[in-house]
Design a protein around this nucleic acid. Structure first.
Length: 761
DNA sequence: GTTCTAGAAC
DNA sequence: GTTCTAGAAC
């Protein structure tokens, strides 16, 4: 790649003729730069630094900090370089750090320094062939660091063995690789025209794609109790001013290898340190891909106050990083001038967030690896509530980059998304985004909504909006953690719940759906689920099923059906009771939610709900189903325009297993609220045919004990359009003539005069 | 499951 | 002001 490919920033600023203080004054525009040169002796670092310093045509004041010369005749130290760099930056100057910096550890303190004083930290890698460096260093005379002749060849070889390619995650905002003098010249030219207020785009430029894999960058991925723990670097605190940093460094001074090319360097590593390094690399390579890249959610659509949004991001990030160790988060924005990015960066630094575990990044979220050199196995999508492509921005970009695979995979996981929630979609390996960028999962997230045509519009309610935005990020991070945990093959303290997602459920696709995860709504009470559900006992699969047995507490009001089932003779004169058999009672629902709404109530004591049903109950279920079909037929004879659905509520409110037979007009005054609607039109409603089939195959029914589907937005059961409230929904469904969703047209899930081969008169 | 009602939304 | 939702009580 051309080294200046990323220098798209215009450099047409007025040239500041004065240096130093003048540059500092202009800080509002661009930033100072700390250029960390990376290269062995003979690679041309000093020549590069002198060329930039001497050729600056744009008024940017440069200071060269060179370890070879900083000791005034004696061997210079890293500490001296750090101090000199800190001083120069404090004076508003940009710094060229002229030392080898071949190892991550050698660079780390300088990067930290640059990030602390909020300057851009660049790496310029002088990646020339070893023989070139050797030949230059061997033959040169009067080298500043007195490294020349035969000794130089040995040192260059030794150092190159230890070379660790710089990576953005070390804290660099930009890395440029120079393979030859031509590349070097281009980079020098780029800096020469970089005015005091200019800045260069973030990213990696000129890297050879088959470069070595960088493992050292993963040192942030410590796990408590593991050997990696020992390698967590000194904790960075916001109050850690430069002098304090220097104190810290001075303690380590004896351990630090000299900057330029000390022959002694190799001896500085004790055996124990080597062992630690090896074990670190081994562990870290296992979890090296656990990185989530996410865009800023809702800030464009919602016109969210960016200051508040950045607080929310930083808070949510801090919370999740505190809870989990082995993850890395990256906030991505396309624009170099992104305000949300700079706000978040500043606040994260102030909040003492480890910049290795969370950082901001300028780039295209769909090309982080190929263009940015940043490997992220999971990326978040600022999705729309329909989970559909389009709309521009990140959503469109991700759908475009991932191809149709993403649409298909998303559809298998969920139909919609509520504000403040997220859903994980495993990205098929056939997707270009998977193949090219190494992205294995997309997590769709939906922030607060302000479009009055959509459900849950917040208008200008920032309190609520903030809450939802925080929920959205938390949900995103929890889902990401769940992916990481499942990749690591273990469930930690707080595994994110794995649930069947919203939308279509059928035996055919239930497997894939289970692989998707929806967010857990921690604040919501699960009133219908009693503690004995024992979610924490779930081990493999983690699908809560059939766990609600005999000990569920039923309120007195919930006992009516049980009472009826046990003593149907007491009700035989009631108008509501249509049929009594040994197995069941058929009755009109007391509060019908449609023109026709009938219950087939099992008479078996102990079968409180579907969760209690086992294979031995199949004959009963089949008989209940047949009774339902028989009565449906009768109703269709009375009104052939009706369409019926037969099914069970996942978690019923009334005790005693009962099958609903309900016409799909939903034209009833008793249908009053969201829970009523969603209990019949979401996955909460399990079709009788599917329940029977699953019990035949698995021995029990898969039940989502998650009642969040009941709180979902109101959508037409035919055309899936959304409506803000019950009255509007009702007026819509009264007129909606759309055909039913295709899955309902299969397997006799819908019964009508045509499917039952009756005459339509 | 429904009813009642406070308070949010309009 | 009225409409609508959501939570508590039953």
């Amino acid at each position: 790649m051309d080294p200046d490919a990323g220098s798209s920033t215009a450099v047409s600023w007025p040239s500041a003729s004065t240096a130093g203080a003048a540059a500092k004054e202009e800080e509002g525009g661009g930033k100072q730069v700390l250029v960390v040169l990376v290269g062995p002796p003979g690679s041309g670092k000093s020549t590069f630094a002198e060329a930039v310093q001497g050729g600056s045509a744009a008024g940017r004041p440069w200071v060269r900090v060179c370890q070879d010369t900083i000791g005034n005749g004696k061997a210079g130290t890293k500490i001296q370089c750090l101090k000199a760099a800190a001083d120069a930056l404090k004076e508003g100057k940009s710094v060229l750090l002229d030392r080898c910096n071949l190892e991550c550890e050698q660079r780390a303190d300088f990067v930290k320094l640059g990030n602390h004083v909020h300057v851009d930290v660049h790496a310029v890698v002088l990646d020339l062939p070893a023989k070139v460096c050797i030949s230059r260093s061997v033959s040169r005379m009067n080298h500043e660091g007195n490294l020349q002749g035969g000794r130089a060849a040995m040192v260059v070889n030794r150092m190159l063995k230890k070379k660790e390619t710089p990576f953005l995650t070390e804290g660099f905002s930009r890395i440029m690789f120079c393979k030859d003098d031509n590349d070097i010249k281009k980079v020098v030219d780029m800096y020469n025209v970089l005015g005091p207020s200019d800045s260069l785009d973030s990213g990696v430029f000129g890297q050879n794609s088959k470069g070595p894999v960088q493992v050292g960058i993963m040192k942030f991925l410590k796990k408590p109790g593991s050997s990696v723990e020992k390698f967590s670097g000194p904790k960075v605190t916001p109050s850690e001013s430069i002098p304090q940093m220097q104190n810290h460094f001075s303690k380590q001074e004896s351990l630090e290898a000299g900057g330029t090319c000390p022959v002694e360097a190799e001896e500085e590593f004790s055996n124990s340190k080597k062992i630690e390094e090896q074990s670190r690399e081994r562990v870290l390579s296992d979890i090296s891909s656990h990185t989530l890249a996410f865009p800023s959610i809702s800030t464009a659509d919602f016109h969210f106050d960016l200051d508040r949004a950045s607080d929310i991001i930083v808070d949510a990030v801090a919370e999740v990083l505190q809870k989990y160790d082995n993850i890395r988060l990256v906030l991505v924005d396309l624009s170099q001038k992104s305000r949300i990015l700079s706000l978040v960066k500043d606040k994260a630094a102030k909040k003492n967030i480890n910049s290795n575990r969370f950082f901001t990044f300028v780039g295209d979220i769909t090309q982080l690896h190929s263009k940015g050199g940043l490997q992220c196995n999971v990326i978040a999508n600022a999705a729309n509530w329909r989970l559909k492509p389009g709309g521009g921005g990140v959503n469109a970009a991700i759908y475009n980059a991932a191809g149709e695979d993403l649409q298909r995979a998303t559809k298998e996981c969920a139909d919609t998304l509520r504000p403040g929630s997220s859903v994980t979609v495993p990205l098929p390996s056939t997707s270009p985004l998977h193949q090219r960028e190494g992205v294995t999962h997309i997590i769709h997230v939906l922030g607060p909504n302000m479009n009055p045509m959509r459900p849950d519009c917040l208008k200008n309610d920032y309190t609520k909006g903030s809450k939802i935005l925080h929920e959205a990020y938390t949900s995103l991070f929890e889902n990401f953690v769940a992916i990481v945990q499942s990749c690591m093959g273990k469930q930690n303290t707080e595994p994110a719940l794995e649930k069947p997602a919203t939308g279509v459920t059928s035996p055919n696709d239930s497997k894939t759906k289970r692989e998707c995860t929806h967010d857990s709504e921690r604040t919501k009470k699960h009133k219908l689920v009693q503690p004995n559900v024992s979610s924490n006992q779930a081990t493999e699969g983690d699908i809560k099923r059939s766990a609600v047995t005999t000990t569920k507490m039923w309120g007195s009001w919930a006992q009516a059906l049980h009472e009826l089932a046990m003593h149907p003779e007491n009700y035989k004169n009631s108008d509501s009771v249509l049929e009594i058999s040994d197995d069941f009672v058929v009755l009109n629902d007391l509060y019908p939610k449609a023109k026709r709404h009938v219950l087939v109530v099992s008479r078996r004591d102990g079968l409180d709900s579907l969760a209690d049903v086992k294979k031995e109950h199949l004959p009963l279920l089949r008989r209940m189903h047949s009774a339902g079909v028989k009565w449906t037929q009768k109703f269709l004879e009375e009104d052939s325009s009706l369409v019926f659905r037969l099914g069970y509520h996942s978690v019923p409110s009334m005790r005693q297993l009962h099958l609903h037979i309900i016409s799909q007009d939903f034209n009833s005054a008793s249908l009053k609220n969201k829970k009523h609607w969603n209990s019949f039109t979401t996955t909460f409603f399990l079709d009788s045919v599917d329940v029977i089939e699953e019990i035949e195959q698995r021995g029990s029914a898969t039940i989502s004990s998650d009642d969040r589907v009941l709180a979902m937005e109101l959508r037409c059961h035919r055309c899936r359009s959304a409506h803000p409230n019950i009255p509007k929904l009702k007026s819509h469904i009264a007129n909606c003539k759309s055909s039913f969703p295709s899955h309902l047209l299969q397997k006799d899930r819908l019964l009508s005069s045509s499917t039952m081969h009756m005459d339509c008169t």
